[in-house]
Design a protein around this nucleic acid. Structure first.
Lengths: 349, 349
DNA sequence: CTCTTCACTGGAAACGTTTGCAATACTGGA
DNA sequence: TCCAGTATTGCAAACGTTTCCAGTGAAGAG
C-alpha cells in the first residue's frame, strides 16, 4: 500500500470530512453519507468505492455533526454520589459495558452528596442533549427534582430511588426481604439488642431496609429499640461516631447491621478501636455485598444483591426508554448470606 | 413484539432554541447569542432583556450545536482497564472533579484489559471529537498505539504509562524509589527470600518497580532470585495461582510484595488458604495504597502515592495541552509506609 | 455642518452531517 | 414504441449555534 502523495495530507491539520471523500470519489455528499451509514438505496459499487476512499483518506465521521442533525447523541449521563464508592464503581462498570455494547457512551458525573451539584449536573447533561440519564440521587425530596425530572425530554432511570409523581424507570433492590431474613436470623439466635446504622431515610434503600427491620421485630413480637438505630448518614464519619456511641451503651448491642459502604467502613473502624472482633464479641452483618468483601474479609455475613445485574438492568431500562417504551420499575431480589461475622455476640448466654 | 409505546409526549415538546428567544425579544439571533455568551459588544439593556426572556422560555443552550460550530466539545475521554479497580475509581473521581470545575465533562470507557477494545475506544472518542484523552493503556506496545496516538489532534495524558515516540503528557509515579525503600527495609531486617508478584512488564509501573527492586538487591550486594518473581498479570487469578506456587517453594519466601489491586487480592487469598498471617509467618507489602486498605486492614504496609493528586494532575496536564502548551511529564513521589504486615516472616532466624 | 469614530445591532455564512425531493437511467410490460 | 415502475444518484435544506461583516444612529472632532 505505498502511497505517493498521502504524506503531505497526513501532516496537515484539517480533518477530513465527508466533503473531501465525495470530491475524491467524484460523487455527491449525500451518496457518501448513504454509503457509509448503511442506507439501502446505494449500489454495491458505490458503497465499495466510497468505503475504500474513506479508508484511504482516514475519514472519521464527526459524531457532533451527526448528533446535531439527527437529534440523537448516543450518550447517557451517569450520575452518582461518588464513583469511589465501590458499589457505584461496579454499577458504572456493568452499566457502561452494556451501554457500549449498544453503541452508547457514558458521561460520568459525581455529585459528591451535594444536591446543588446534582442539580447542576442534571442541567449540564440536558444541555449536552444526552439521550438518557441514569442516576442515584442524593435525596428523593430535593426542591429541584420535580422541576428537573418531571416530563423529561429523555428517559430517566433511577438507581435504588423512588420519586413520586415523576415519569421515570427505576431499578429497586428488595432490601426489605434480605434484611428481614437477616434480622430474623439474629433474633432466632437470641439477639435482642440489634443496632442498625445506615444513611438517612430520604432515600429508598434506607426506608426499605427499615421496613424489613421493623417487620422482623413485629413478626417476632418484639418491640423496636429506636435508640439502637442510627439512621442519618452514608459517610464513614457518621457511622464511626454513632458506632462509638452505640458500643458504649448499656446494655451494649449484641449485633450490628451496617448499611452501605460508608457504614461498613465506620463500624469496622469503631470495632477495631475497641478491639471487638466480629463474629466473636459481636455479630455483624453488612447490608451490601461490597466487591472487596469477597476476597478480603470473606467471613462477613451480608445481604447480597447482584450489583452487576443491576447495572445491566439500568442500561436496558434506559435503552427501552429511548425506544419509546413506557417507564417501568424493575425489582431485584436480595438474600441473606450467613458467614462467620454474624456469629457470636451472645457470650452471656 | 407488540410492545406498547408511550405517547410521544417526549418528542412533541419542541425544545426552545435561540431563534425563539430572538423572536420573542424581537432582536436578531446574533444578539441573543452574544448576550448569552458574554460577548463584550452588547448593551446592558440588551443583555438584561435577552436573559430575562431566555429564562422565561426555559432556554437551554444546545451544546451539540455549540460544539459543532466552535469545534470544541469540552469533553475528555477517560480510558481505563476497569473502573471497578479502586485505584482507577479514585483517579476517575479526582480527575472528574478537577475537569468539571473547569467546565469539562468526562466520558468513561473501560477497555477491560483488551487491546482491541482499547483501540475501538480511542477511535470512538476521536469520532466524538473529545478535546483530550486521559488513558491508562493496557499495554505500551500495542500495534495500534502509534497509529492512534501519534501526532494526535487533541492532547493525550498517559496515566503511569510510557510510550516512546509519541507526543503525549504523562503522570508517572516514582515507584522505583518506594519499592527500593521497602525492599531495602526487608533486606535489613534479614529477609533474603523476597517474592514479588505483579502485572506484566509491558507497562511502566512494573518495569519501574522492578528497577527499584533490582537496585535494592544490588545495593545490598545480594543477587536476585528470578524464581521468586511472578511478573505477568494484574488480575487476581494470576496472583492467586502464582502465590500458591511460591508458597510451596522450598525455601519458602519470607516476604511478599504485591503490585496492584489484583495482586493484593490474589496474594491475600492465597495466604488465607494456607492460614498464613501477614506480619507473623510472612512479611507482606502492598505496592499500592489502595483506598479500602486505610480503613479495612490498617495494618498493611504499603508503598504510598497520592492517587488523588495524580488524578488532579492528569486533569491539569490535559487542560494545559488544550491550552496549546507542550506535553510534559509529571513525576509523583512514592514512599514506603511501614505497618504491621511487613513484620515477621523470619521465625526460623 | 460634515466627517470620523464609536457602540451596538442585524444579516448571513459557516460547522459536518442527514434526508426529503427531484432527476436520471434502465427495466420490462402493454 | 411508449410508459410506469424501479433503482440509483444529486441537490439543497435543514439541525442550533457562533462570528464575520456591513450597517445604523449618535456623539464628538474639526
Amino acid at each position: 500500500m505505498a502511497s505517493e502523495k498521502s504524506e503531505n495530507s497526513r501532516s496537515d491539520k484539517q480533518r477530513v470530512t465527508i466533503r473531501e471523500v465525495a470530491a475524491k470519489a467524484e460523487v455527491a455528499l449525500s451518496s457518501v453519507s448513504r454509503a457509509l451509514s448503511g442506507h439501502p438505496d446505494v449500489s454495491d459499487e458505490m458503497r465499495k468505492r466510497v468505503k475504500e476512499i474513506a479508508d484511504e483518506l482516514g475519514y472519521e465521521p464527526n459524531l457532533v455533526a451527526q448528533s446535531l442533525r439527527s437529534g440523537v447523541t448516543r450518550t447517557i449521563g451517569f450520575v452518582v454520589r461518588d464513583i469511589n464508592n465501590p458499589m457505584f464503581a461496579l454499577l458504572a462498570r456493568s452499566c457502561e459495558n452494556e451501554l457500549r455494547r449498544n453503541g452508547y457512551s457514558m458521561i460520568l458525573v459525581n455529585s459528591d452528596g451535594s444536591i446543588e451539584n446534582e442539580n447542576r449536573n442534571f442541567s449540564l447533561l440536558r444541555r449536552r442533549r444526552v439521550d438518557g440519564i441514569i442516576a442515584s440521587l442524593v435525596s428523593e425530596d430535593s426542591p429541584y427534582l420535580i422541576k428537573n425530572l418531571d416530563s423529561p425530554r429523555s428517559p430517566i432511570v433511577l438507581l435504588d430511588r423512588e420519586v413520586k409523581g415523576i415519569n421515570a424507570s427505576a431499578v429497586l433492590a428488595d432490601h426489605a426481604a434480605g434484611v428481614h431474613e437477616a434480622v430474623t436470623h439474629l433474633i432466632k439466635a437470641g439477639h435482642r439488642e440489634i443496632a442498625f446504622i445506615t444513611g438517612s431515610n430520604n432515600v429508598y434503600p434506607t426506608r426499605n431496609r427499615l421496613q424489613g427491620f421493623t417487620k422482623a421485630f413485629e413478626d417476632a413480637k418484639l418491640k423496636l429499640q429506636p435508640d439502637l438505630m442510627a439512621i442519618g448518614g452514608f459517610d464513614a464519619e457518621y457511622a464511626l461516631s454513632h458506632a462509638r456511641i452505640l458500643l458504649h451503651r448499656n446494655p451494649a448491642p449484641t449485633a450490628i447491621l451496617a448499611g452501605g459502604h460508608g457504614a461498613l467502613m465506620g463500624v469496622s473502624r469503631a470495632l477495631k478501636e475497641k478491639k471487638i472482633t466480629m463474629g466473636k464479641e459481636i455479630a455483624f452483618i453488612a447490608l451490601d455485598q461490597l466487591p472487596y468483601l469477597e476476597v478480603f474479609s470473606d467471613n462477613i455475613s451480608t445481604v447480597y444483591r447482584d450489583t452487576e445485574a443491576i447495572g445491566r438492568e439500568a442500561a436496558r431500562l434506559i435503552l427501552e426508554g429511548i425506544d419509546g417504551e413506557k417507564p417501568r420499575v424493575s425489582l431485584i431480589e436480595t438474600q441473606f448470606i450467613e458467614r462467620a461475622s454474624s456469629q457470636g455476640g451472645l457470650q452471656h448466654a
